[in-house]
């Protein structure tokens, strides 16, 4: 009961962030809503799929951006009409949503099945391979995209055109992010989710208890792919364009950096990390001094380095440490070890 205050503060802040997200379009300049905040929500979704796999399945996947890209390319091919690369099928954007997510999830099942035997660094390398394959696939299969990519991807008419109504897409992204977040939070407390955490902690023990570890990993990977795919659909609506550079290695690393800056052990950290990343990315480019404007990579690299050294749990780790320090001062007992919520634990590296 002693750690109730910390939990209350944590939830209170979470609630405030949600309220802010709801009223933000009325408070901040349109540039913020249409660009920074929408992009934060979308990148947060992809990073959350990575954090889900890492925190609950022990799988640090570099393929999330590829799966998100596959969903995006499917949407692009199906829904554009005439003047761009790709199949230009001109279908209703809602079909794009369904097929984009379904196809990307099927690919995720395949990737998951192929990588389900591997753990640790080997898993990382296999998913890196997937990322590279996806990148070159869309670059070289010119029927589907080519290096120039697909432009003019429309959002459904209920939401778009995005340039005219940026608020609508912002709220759609907010709603989707919220639903996916709630879904992931729910799933980790189901039989599937608890078993997944068992697989994370000790796969050998899980098999001797009667579990099919590879199947479990595969399905978890597919679920992570589904979440990333939802982000991919939103990305092409927001960006109206996708090309292989959108899923190249630097984009993969961006999402990994977001997840690490936020904190690889807690889902909320995805959006925190994405916000810091997007804001830094935007403002560093406007800084006039030290030629920093062209050196975003250097700046984010230094931020990354500082965070990894100061707090392996990322910004969320710093936050939790502050909360537990405050809690300790109040109660004079060391309750700091107890995490705020069951099921969240720092991965031991």
């Amino acid at each position: 009961m002693r750690r109730l205050p910390a939990l209350t503060v944590d939830r209170g802040i979470g609630g405030l962030v949600l309220v802010f997200a709801v009223v933000a379009p009325f408070l901040v300049p349109q540039f913020w809503t249409a660009n920074l905040l929408t992009q934060t929500l979308i990148l947060g979704i992809v990073a959350a799929s990575l954090i889900f796999l890492s925190a609950y399945g022990g799988m640090v996947s570099l393929a999330q951006v590829s799966i998100y890209g596959i969903a995006g390319f499917v949407v692009g091919n199906l829904t554009t009409n005439g003047n761009t690369k790709g199949l230009n099928l001109g279908w209703n954007p809602w079909w794009g949503v369904v097929l984009g997510i379904v196809i990307a999830t099927i690919v995720a099942i395949l990737f998951g099945a192929l990588s389900s035997r591997s753990t640790g660094i080997y898993f990382l390398m296999i998913t890196l391979t997937f990322a590279v394959i996806a990148n070159y696939f869309f670059g070289q299969v010119t029927d589907l995209s080519g290096f120039g990519g697909i432009s003019g991807i429309p959002a459904p008419k209920q939401i778009g055109p995005v340039d005219a109504h940026p608020w609508r897409l912002y709220y759609v992204c907010f709603g989707v992010a919220l639903v996916l977040y709630a879904l992931m939070r729910y799933v980790v407390r189901t039989p599937f989710g608890i078993s997944l955490q068992g697989v994370r902690d000790d796969p050998v023990r899980m098999s001797s208890l009667g579990y099919n570890v590879r199947l479990h990993r595969t399905i978890a990977f597919a679920f992570g792919g589904f979440v990333a795919a939802c982000g991919g659909v939103l990305f092409v609506w927001w960006n109206q364009h996708i090309d292989p550079a959108s899923i190249q290695l630097s984009a993969v690393i961006d999402v990994l950096v977001i997840a690490v800056i936020g904190g690889l052990f807690r889902l909320e950290a995805a959006w925190l990390g994405a916000f810091v990343f997007v804001v830094l990315n935007n403002y560093v480019q406007r800084l006039g001094f030290w030629s920093l404007s062209t050196r975003f990579g250097t700046v984010i690299g230094l931020v990354f380095l500082a965070i990894v050294i100061l707090s392996p749990g990322g910004l969320m780790g710093i936050w939790e440490r502050l909360l537990s320090l405050a809690g300790r001062r109040r109660s004079q007992t060391p309750t700091a070890q107890a995490p705020l919520e069951s099921g969240t634990v720092e991965p031991s590296v």
Binding site: V187, R189, T190, P191, F192, G193, I194, S195, Q197, G198, R200, D201, D202, V204, R205, M206, L209, G210, Y211, N212, L215, H216, I219, F223, S342, G343, V345
Partner: peptide, 28 residues
């Protein structure tokens, strides 16, 4: 060989569930 990131009850929950159906059930 225990699941260190889970509670005592969740560890036993997994052990009980292991020989039963529904490992992959994504709903409670």
């Amino acid at each position: 060989r225990l699941f260190h990131g889970l509670s005592v009850e969740d560890n036993l929950y997994l052990a009980v569930l292991g020989v039963k159906q529904g490992h992959l059930r994504p709903v409670v």
